[in-house]
Write a protein that binds this DNA or RNA. Structure first.
Length: 594
RNA sequence: GGGGGCGUAGUUAAGUUGGUUAUAACGCCGGCCUGUCACGCCGGAGGCCGCGAGUUCGAGUCUCGUCGCUCCCGCCA
């Protein structure tokens, strides 16, 4: 019998275009869909009728239905067609094994063009590359194409699974406002003018952070929401001004509770959607370990190419460049690219360009061979230094040693990015692999030299680790946070923290961030007040849904997992947004035209 | 704000040191064709070479500017 749910049948159709099988042979059916292709043999006409469920070949035979056959000659690509007819087996030798419906076809008795279609600006049925601006302008046609359909259906299945999972774990899907209050810190807000309060503005949420904390104060205990967030910053291949978070928050938890929940959730997603067994528990690195070994707070642990600190080796060096860096508080780190000695001078110069992007001024190198070391800098090293260096880096003939000496932030990022670059370049990465890790114990604060104050690394509501609370007064930069990121293949897919649930700690935090009492009261008074009415210990995490789907589908652009994305200049090529508005609208808002 | 890449029929691309009428494939239009499914065969139309200046006897090609798309840095608690 038909395995397709009868809920898919409507006044127009009995089945979808992917449903029919030999079991339905003899049945009188009705199909509706788009003309994928037609093959007019003068006599018999074949039409491939497509909807999102599949493709069915329908046959117009002049001897069976002359009127329909005449109509079939006028059919063109992407016409919307409804047909009625009989499911028949395909004649001997004409079965199409590459189609799920390939054993049958529908012999048409009646046909109706529900809507004609202009010739599309690009071919909907072919998978070839089309300029992205054209795809975005005619997004409704682009979305009709197979890859986009597949991705958005995958996205739906993922969110459906997440909702079911979180429901099972006792989470409540609760909504938070889209029109809310602009707050200091963080990204630039998208602002919405208030008509009823001229000169006042709402902000679109950068995340539901404070509201979900208030849900915890309210005793809802476990909250989640799959919701839009807005940040008015410049775009990247993996960044859109509006994006979707899987946002969650729990009461009475420590980080271990979050890890357990999320590993279970991810394992379920991978198993059910991709039939992949994720190894558990996920790897864990502290922030410090991640920076030491990988130079980045989002380490890619699919391959082993550790950064090595060489401060000890060169502690007493007289090599001016290294000496200067060490004396001004910088670091010297290196990595050993096994087999890298075969790289040409040109290829090494190209590596310099890679690190320059991140601010490194130089990239020192040593080619290790049986005859000795080839390098522009070894002549400045003492014998002891060279020996210690070779030992520390495990250098053997054939290796290429690469170094950056700079401020810690620059040296780490430059080498960290170089590490990934080299791994991709030399095929060290298993492109099939999905490798998760937790990065834990982030610093709570970071000193911003430009603003001459501390800024929150995660956000101002993140709790310090209990044993570090005392350091808040003496060494705020050394305080570790109860904050964690989930990293997949070197890309942050989620992050969260245990929150501050006591008013005095939150006030202390604001003061460390140089947010005065008055400003704190004005911007965050409602939160401070709430913390005084029995706020439970709580914490949570949020995932970038778009980025997650992008990674799981092995896509390179976040735009390919969003139905209607913005261009890099944050415009919508489909609608033409943003646009000017009528003077009247501005007047109502008390805004003077620019 | 800064750096890089791209822009040629509807689409995807080719286009030599600057040199006749700017090519091809797919698509589109017309005709033929009763078992195709990348249908086939015959014929045809289709170009502001992103836009604007400049250099030149001559610009798709070189220069400058500009617009659009894109990748990256800054930015993104």
């Amino acid at each position: 019998m038909n395995s397709e749910p009868s809920t898919l049948s409507t006044a127009y159709r009995t089945h979808t275009c992917g449903a029919l099988r030999p079991e339905q042979i003899g049945a009188h059916v009705a199909l509706a869909g788009w003309v994928q292709n037609w093959r007019d043999h003068g006599g018999v006409v074949f039409v491939d009728l497509r909807d999102r469920h599949g493709l069915t070949q329908v046959v117009f035979n002049p001897e069976i239905a002359p009127d329909s056959h005449r109509l079939a000659h006028t059919v063109r690509s992407e016409f919307v067609l409804r047909i009625e007819g009989e499911v028949i087996p395909r004649p001997e030798g004409t079965v199409n094994p590459s189609l799920p419906t390939g054993e049958i076809e529908v012999s048409v008795n009646r046909a109706e063009i529900l809507n004609a279609a202009k010739t599309p600006p690009f071919m909907v049925d072919e998978l070839g590359e089309v300029a992205e601006n054209l795809r975005l302008q005619y997004r409704y046609l682009d979305l009709r194409r197979q890859p986009m359909q597949q991705t958005l259906i995958f996205r739906h299945r993922l969110t459906t699974l997440v909702r079911a999972f979180l429901d099972q774990w006792g989470f409540l899907d609760l909504e938070t406002p889209m029109l809310t209050k602009s707050t200091p810190e963080g990204a630039r807000d998208y602002l919405v003018p208030s008509r009823t309060h001229p000169g006042h503005f709402f902000a679109l949420p950068q995340s539901p952070q404070l509201f979900k904390q208030l849900f915890m104060v309210a005793g809802f205990d476990r909250y989640f929401q799959i919701t839009r967030c807005f940040r008015d910053e410049d775009l990247r291949a993996d960044r859109q001004p509006e994006f979707t978070q899987i946002d969650m928050e729990m009461s009475f938890v420590e980080p271990e509770d979050i890890y357990r929940l999320i590993e279970e959730m991810m394992a379920g997603i991978f198993k059910k959607l991709m039939d992949i067994e994720l190894p558990r528990p996920f790897a864990r690195l502290t922030y410090t370990e991640a920076m030491d070994r990988c130079g980045l707070d989002a380490p890619d642990i699919r391959f082993d190419l550790p950064l090595v600190d060489l401060g000890g080796v060169f502690a007493d060096t007289e090599f001016k460049v290294f000496r200067g860096v060490l004396d001004t508080g910088g670091i010297i780190k290196g990595l050993n690219l096994k087999g890298g000695a075969r790289l040409s001078r040109k290829e090494i110069d190209d590596l310099l360009e890679v690190v320059k992007v991140y601010g490194a001024r130089g990239l020192a190198w040593i080619k290790v061979s049986a005859e000795g070391w080839q390098s522009p800098i070894v002549k400045f090293f003492s014998d002891d230094e060279s020996r210690a260096l070779g030992e520390r880096m495990g250098a053997v003939p054939g290796d290429l040693l690469l170094f950056v000496a700079d401020k810690a932030a620059i040296a780490n990022e430059a080498l960290g990015r170089l590490r990934v670059h080299l791994a991709k370049m030399t095929g060290l990465i298993d492109e099939e692999a999905f490798s998760f890790c937790w990065v834990t114990d982030f610093p709570l604060l970071e000193y911003d030299a430009g603003e001459r104050r501390h800024v929150a690394i995660h956000h101002p509501f993140t709790a310090p680790r209990d044993e570090d609370v005392a350091l808040l007064e003496s060494d705020p930069g050394d305080v570790r946070a109860k904050a964690y990121d989930l990293v997949l293949n070197g890309i942050e897919v989620g992050g969260g923290s245990i929150r501050i649930h006591r008013r005095e700690v939150q006030e202390k935090m604001f003061s460390l961030l140089n947010i005065g009492d008055e400003e704190a009261r004005e911007k965050f008074g409602f939160l401070l007040d709430a913390l005084e009415y029995g706020a439970p210990p709580h914490g949570g995490i949020a995932f970038g849904l778009d980025r997650l789907v992008m990674l799981l589908q092995r896509l390179d652009s976040i735009r390919d997992v969003i139905a209607f994305p913005k261009t890099q200049k944050a415009t919508c090529l489909l609608t033409g947004a943003p646009s000017t508005v009528q003077a009247r609208q501005l007047r109502d808002l008390g805004i003077k035209p620019a």
